[in-house]
Design a binder for these strands. Structure first.
Length: 270
DNA sequence: ATATGCACCTGTGTGC
DNA sequence: TGCACACAGGTGCATA
């Protein structure tokens, strides 16, 4: 489900509500996530204090002191919700964490593609190969060109590759390529310098706009307060098959690409 | 190197 | 109403 803007929105909610909170009871109701939960390790969070809540790409990192970090990935359908402690457990609520304040963190994930673990940040090999943060160090067309040198695959596949640039998923890659005027199926080595420059620029603006709108809720994404985002209101192509392009009126097309759906405007994107 | 297919899961929407 | 099937904000692996 969540791409960078949704994860960032959740991060802000957790930061606002949990920094300084001491962790109480940790209850693992269903350890069989994509990667099985190490229950004793997770329970060892109890008694620690949340110092900070960070994000790297689509990963959340809660600093719990002494170099220990609670690392989470939400997969496709993972949700982190802050609710009153007496709130009954909902469907697919796999983990519950209490605090020394009247809020309770619930991890819900129907598909169980998400996972979480506790460890030292420098040992997280999941993070080792990640590309640059799109909203961090300025990624210009030149930087992007360097990172894409030598590859001949579709530009869409390249942008979804978290080693090239980290945090983009299927919604935003489609939106970025629409705004840049490049079809998802264009081979990377055929993307011209000015187009690459536009892709770099639109990557920043699309993701920044989406963070400002607190993510995209087209079916079941909500932030940690249970509030939907609003980026779905301004989507140009994603999930708009057959609808008129907002720029030129041409019918938006959908086609499978690499096992996932690509959406594009046949007139605006070359 | 890269493309494809599949696997991990459950829910939802569609068409018959 | 039931049923079959396609598809869903993500990885990761095995195979060609």
């Amino acid at each position: 489900m969540p791409e960078l803007p949704e994860v960032e929105t959740i991060r802000r909610g957790l930061e606002r509500n949990l920094v300084g909170a001491r962790i109480g009871e940790v209850l693992v109701r269903e350890p069989r996530l994509r990667r099985p939960v190490d229950v004793p390790a997770l329970r060892s969070l109890s008694g620690r204090t949340v110092r900070a809540v960070g994000r790297r790409a689509k990963y959340l990192l809660a600093d719990v002191g002494d170099g220990l970090v609670w690392l989470m990935h939400l997969g496709m359908s993972g949700r982190l919700l802050l609710v009153p402690p007496d709130e009954p457990a909902g469907d697919h609520e796999h983990v519950r964490v209490e605090f020394d304040r009247p809020t309770s963190l619930r991890y819900r994930d129907p598909r169980r593609f998400g996972w979480m673990r506790v460890g030292r940040a420098e040992t997280f090999e999941e993070l080792a190969g990640l590309g640059p943060e799109p909203l961090g160090e300025e990624i210009g067309g030149e930087a992007l060109r360097t990172r894409l040198r030598g590859t001949r695959r579709d530009i869409k596949a390249a942008l979804l590759d978290q080693r090239v640039i980290a945090g983009i998923g299927n919604i935003y890659v489609n939106e970025i390529l629409f705004r840049a005027g490049v079809r998802p199926t264009r081979r990377t080595h055929r993307v011209r310098a000015p187009e690459l420059e536009r892709i770099a620029k639109e990557t920043r603006t699309v993701l920044a706009d989406a963070v400002e709108r607190r993510g995209t809720s087209f079916s079941d994404y909500f932030d940690s307060d249970g509030i939907p985002g609003t980026f779905q209101d301004v989507l140009s192509v994603f999930d708009r098959t057959g609808l008129p392009c907002r720029r030129c009126g041409t019918s938006i097309k959908r086609r499978p690409q690499g096992g996932r759906s690509s959406f594009y405007c046949p007139s605006c994107q070359l």
